[in-house]
């Protein structure tokens, strides 16, 4: 279905994207509204995330044991989950720098490498120990999925990592990495938005950030009011989604198809 935008002939909606666009604008609006509220001093209280609290414990444990912390921001390119993973890498780099532990970051996507290097370097700089930053701590392994898995598994076994943090988008290598971390005796914290990999992480890791928790974790960890505001905006967006689901389900049961028709536009 093609529709003119505001009666203007410059652009028309792509197939079945009319309602998606309206929802997208509404969700962005909710997030921006709550960010502005937070900017004006109305900072929302966000619950703690268990997996997030465990990161400091994991880094502390690695420091005491004199063994490195392994971090993977996932195997995706620059998507939302990878950005969330890089946001958390910033937190981990600061903690590692503060404790004086060793950090190994393994990378699959070349485009993520320079960003991860910058994030880790910035983390060390923020902790006031930029000179302790080791350029070899961020390692490109391979763009091939299972070559990346094999290389990372080898590093985890050889270096006997004490903490294994996997936060980002993961595919079938999730179970390989998590089981290797378990065999190395590492405390494991994982998070992904890929639902087919969540069961593997749940069965093998100590803490798991499921779906949106991954996206919220960086904001919660930073305690930055604007980032916390964006999380509160997500809650408004969820209320909108739930309202659509409930009203749509009830209406469909009464034979009213207005909501389902609207969703398909």
């Amino acid at each position: 279905m093609y529709k003119n935008l505001w009666g203007c002939n410059l652009m028309t909606f792509a197939n079945n994207q009319f309602f998606a666009f309206i929802s997208f604008i509404l969700i962005v609006g909710f997030v921006v509204y709550k960010i502005v509220q937070a900017q004006n001093g109305k900072i929302p209280a966000i619950r703690r995330i268990a997996g997030l609290d465990a990161i400091e414990e994991a880094v502390g444990r690695a420091t005491e044991m004199g063994r490195p912390v392994h971090y993977s921001p996932g195997v995706g390119a620059l998507d939302a989950a990878t950005f969330a993973g890089l946001e958390l890498l910033d937190l981990v780099a600061k903690q590692v720098a503060r404790y004086g532990a060793d950090l190994i970051v393994t990378i699959r996507q070349p485009i993520v490498l320079p960003i991860a290097e910058e994030v880790v370097k910035t983390g060390y700089r923020s902790a006031g120990v930029e000179e302790a930053y080791n350029p070899d701590s961020v390692r490109f392994i391979s763009q091939e999925q299972f070559a990346y898995a094999a290389g990372t598994m080898g590093i985890m076994e050889r270096e006997q990592v004490a903490a294994n943090l996997m936060l980002g988008y993961f595919l079938a290598e999730s179970i390989l990495l998590a089981e290797t971390g378990f065999k190395a005796g590492a405390i494991q914290i994982a998070g992904t938005d890929n639902r087919s990999q969540v069961p593997f992480f749940v069965t093998t890791c100590d803490y798991v950030l499921i779906g949106e928790e991954l996206f919220a974790a960086g904001a919660v960890a930073s305690q930055n009011p604007l980032k916390l505001g964006s999380i509160a905006g997500q809650d408004l967006a969820k209320i909108y989604a739930i309202a659509l689901l409930v009203i749509g389900s009830v209406a469909a049961n009464f034979g009213i198809t207005a909501i389902s028709n609207l969703l398909s536009k």
């Binding site: 997208f24 969700i27 962005v28 997030v31 921006v32 960010i35 998507d79 939302a80 989950a81 950005f83 969330a84 890089l86 946001e87 910033d90 960003i115 910058e118 994030v119 910035t122 938005d193 779906g211 949106e212 991954l214 996206f215 919220a216 960086g218 904001a219 930055n224 604007l226 980032k227 964006s230 999380i231 905006g233 997500q234 967006a237 969820k238 989604a241």
Partner: peptide, 20 residues
């Protein structure tokens, strides 16, 4: 996850998240 992804996008594009 979809809503969380949009929120991350807003944070990155508005410059609130600029660690990268």
């Amino acid at each position: 996850a979809a809503i969380g992804g949009i929120a991350v996008g807003v944070r990155v594009l508005s410059g609130i998240e600029s660690g990268h």
